[in-house]
Design a protein around this nucleic acid. Structure first.
Lengths: 154, 154
DNA sequence: TATTGTTATACTCTATAACTATA
DNA sequence: TATAGTTATAGAGTATAACAATA
């Protein structure tokens, strides 16, 4: 040993380490799949949200996704440049915009969702259903206890 | 409903979603704790690795942490500027450097490790030991099956 | 020629804050 | 004055690639 050191818990002693380890690999694998469709993970979450509830104002999306309005603005630029969504002037209050998926944007989401399904299956498909459900319930319980709200992007 | 759409699996249908959701919150909580010590998560992993095996070459660290040599170089700059580590000219092969923790760097690591312990306890402390071990084993099994190697930073 | 470490560039995300148009 | 959206700036990551020094 080169230096005398007090005992310190190793990185691998933490459950958070293992969660992050696996979670990051899953996200990267997913982002590689999305790359073939020229979409980032943040863009996927954005598109999926618009698919669910169309004609949303940027500020509402910012709240829902836990991002700043500036970040939403930049994401909107990129997605509009790819012709996946459109900005529309709002209704009565002319400060508000309305974000809507284009036809091609709407057509893309189910394909991306399938990539998400495949990715999940790749990593968890071998686990027994009960074990998967147990892990999912543990995560939901942590989210509930700590009152976690915003959707994770990274 | 504003638009007719084919059924698409929601984000929350994926176990990967919940893992990322919780994992990102855990990391952010940890990074807020580290912030009080003026250290980022990437710097923590870096310091923890040097604590374990001192006098490592940057290129070896890059391999071990799954980062590029450029990224290691930048991190080394920052940590050296904080006087937490030192670059030393190598031995026979003068291309190699040797990275070593300073006295203050070595003194800091146990304090950061305690923050990591506290963070893990905050999020998982309420779970029964058997459940914690089960999740940890599931994650390790996924890492083993998929041959995952690099340490996660984000 | 190959390798080590540095540097430059570009990209995606983060955050804060200034700015405009509108209410 | 407050709010919606844009823009600018800075920082922490990622990646690729060029480069000097050394082997």
């Amino acid at each position: 040993m080169t230096t005398q050191s007090p005992a310190v818990s190793p990185l691998e002693a933490h459950l958070g380490y293992w969660l992050r380890f696996v979670s990051n690999h899953i996200s990267h694998a997913f982002s590689r799949k999305l790359f073939a469709r020229d979409v980032t993970v943040a863009e996927w979450v954005f598109l999926r949200e618009l698919y669910e509830r169309d004609a949303v104002a940027p500020s509402e999306l910012a709240t829902r996704l836990g991002m700043t309005r500036g970040a939403i603005s930049k994401l909107t630029d990129r997605l509009a440049a790819k012709s996946l969504l459109e900005r529309t002037a709002g209704g009565n209050d002319r400060r508000y915009q309305s974000l809507t998926l284009t036809r091609s944007g709407r057509a893309l989401v189910p394909k991306l969702a399938q990539l998400a399904d495949e990715n999940d299956e790749e990593f968890f498909g071998h686990l027994p259903r009960t074990e998967r459900r147990m892990i999912e319930n543990s995560m939901k319980e942590i989210a509930r206890r700590r009152d976690l709200k915003t959707i994770p992007i990274e």
